[in-house]
């Protein structure tokens, strides 16, 4: 019933993950698969573009918690962009802005990786 789509786009050395629709306990494994693929390919720089994400529950938030440290240990990161206010509020409620960088648009997030080299 609820739809979720996840697409992976390489932009130079960064991998952009586009998440669309409803991210909950039912659909979170699809996102985990994408992160596992990135680890297999040793691609550790990730921007998640939330432009078309309508809903997130803690099962979705947990995926980012599970992978971010591994990305950082390998000189990468998970950065967030294009988040709608209702989705950002959930991240904020759980204190995510302490640990993650949020950008208004994807380009800013990509540039942050560029300036870090």
């Amino acid at each position: 019933m609820a739809e979720f789509n996840v697409d992976l786009r390489p932009v130079g050395s960064v991998s952009v993950i586009d998440v669309k629709g409803y991210l909950d306990a039912h659909t979170a494994p699809e996102l985990e698969n994408v992160f596992n693929k990135l680890l297999d390919e040793k691609r550790f720089k990730v921007v998640v573009n939330f432009d078309e994400l309508k809903y997130i529950s803690s099962a979705g938030l947990g995926v980012f918690m599970a992978y971010v440290e591994t990305m950082r240990e390998n000189k990468g990161d998970i950065k967030f962009s294009n988040m709608k206010e209702n989705v950002y509020n959930i991240f904020d409620l759980l204190g995510f802005p302490i640990l993650y960088e949020f950008f208004k648009d994807e380009r800013e997030a990509l540039q942050k990786f560029d300036t870090l080299g």
């Binding site: 529950s57 803690s58 099962a59 938030l61 947990g62 995926v63 918690m65 599970a66 971010v68 440290e69 591994t70 959930i90 409620l93 759980l94 204190g95 995510f96 302490i98 640990l99």
Partner: peptide, 17 residues
Amino acid sequence: LVEYYKQKRAGGLGVFL
């Protein structure tokens, strides 16, 4: 959250939410 981060934990956020 900082402890979760160190432990690569993913669950336990629901009850709090």
